[in-house]
Design a protein around this nucleic acid. Sequence first.
DNA 1: TGCGCTCTTTGCGCCACCTCAAACAACAGA
DNA 2: TCTGTTGTTTGAGGTGGCGCAAAGAGCGCA
Lengths: 233, 233
Amino acid sequence: MPELDGSLIAGLPLFSAMSKKELDFLLCRARSARYPKDLAIFEQDGNADAFFLLLDGHIRVVRLNEDGEQVIARYINPGELFGIAVAMGRATYPASAIAAVDCVALAWPNEAWPDLTARVPQFASGAYRTIGERLQETQDQVMQMSTEQVEQRVAHTLLRLVQQSGRKTAEGIEIDFPITRQDIAEMTGTTLHTVSRLLSAWEDMGLVRGGRQRVIVTDAHNLMLIAEHRRKR
Amino acid sequence: MPELDGSLIAGLPLFSAMSKKELDFLLCRARSARYPKDLAIFEQDGNADAFFLLLDGHIRVVRLNEDGEQVIARYINPGELFGIAVAMGRATYPASAIAAVDCVALAWPNEAWPDLTARVPQFASGAYRTIGERLQETQDQVMQMSTEQVEQRVAHTLLRLVQQSGRKTAEGIEIDFPITRQDIAEMTGTTLHTVSRLLSAWEDMGLVRGGRQRVIVTDAHNLMLIAEHRRKR
DNA sequence: TGCGCTCTTTGCGCCACCTCAAACAACAGA
DNA sequence: TCTGTTGTTTGAGGTGGCGCAAAGAGCGCA
């Protein structure tokens, strides 16, 4: 398969310091697969039997509580590892992974993990660094939810999405996958109504442009002012 | 040092599967230290140069944002690893660790990490499992803050504290370290006023007993009903 | 081209929780 | 024992954002 010859992958930071031999070792143990939009690549509480590297597309990581209420933990972008429960000694996935658009990913069976980490230690340390970043981001989120108003949280989230998954357009930077007001609400702990109101207000101020499942940030600078705005003090 | 002969430590789940030789290898590379109440064992954004195992006491893990607002990420209990930034490839600590009472902990210099993990792989996998649990707990916290009211969040937090750090007394289960209403507020994303009001109400209902920097849960069952209470549906 | 579905917008009323304020209680140190 | 400090309680009032409702608007599909 031409996608697996390494040319596509060697450019990723995770693999940049690897030799050709190490790369081959990794790649020949993975299988590449297409995941159509809306497919669950794995399910929360499902048996964790593989871990993944996203090559193309965007993935929504979703947690469901016992009442069926949904929260979006994060989006995964190309080049990122996901589903690496095995690195944390977990037997099940803590969340579901849903393809936000058509995706291509590499998948390794969990049984390959010991060999992989033994033979290619950079791969293991990359995975652990990823986990560290996720923990940090999640703790940041807790802090934001504790200390910020809804308006600031939504602004921060939009800026983060645009930074991580933005695509330059003539009008500004567009979030590169379909995202609903409801999705943004589930990332920020609010309701789609409040998100819609905020986006409408910001559109009037010329900070963003919206559409059905589309958000474009046209004035990141002033949006940042809103995100950092302090009520008191 | 008598504390380091292994008898105290071999009982911990992290070390239960290790041979005497492995244990000695770990322990002779650690130094044991006392940390008096209120001392910062390490500081947020400070250079991460060591990792720790709490032997006795309780530690408050605190994050500060740029406005000086404080959030308590968690409490560390005896037997737990903490400050394991090195396992995630981090150069700095993401939070501060403050002794909530007088504490005793083992400290390893970060330079020892490669040797330790190479020679005692169970130690590494224990650390990674710990990180996985922390990530899971933090994500649970985000979900709670998104979907639950303050009342439920405080009840859940109290139950968790009592479960993790509870001490049986004649009247019920007491949280085993001094904790203020302000502390509970900083764990749940509310204000000390609201926490105080809730605790007063629960005291009237006979669910808890309070005092200065003290909380005793006298009726965990009914407190759990409050924690799981659903407004709608 | 029209129908139905999903997503979005907007208005209105309300209440959970925050803010501000003040008094009270427990403890530590002189 | 007194006094300052830190933690707790409680009241009163205001509001941010939620719940509910209903009307648009874009898109896929027949």
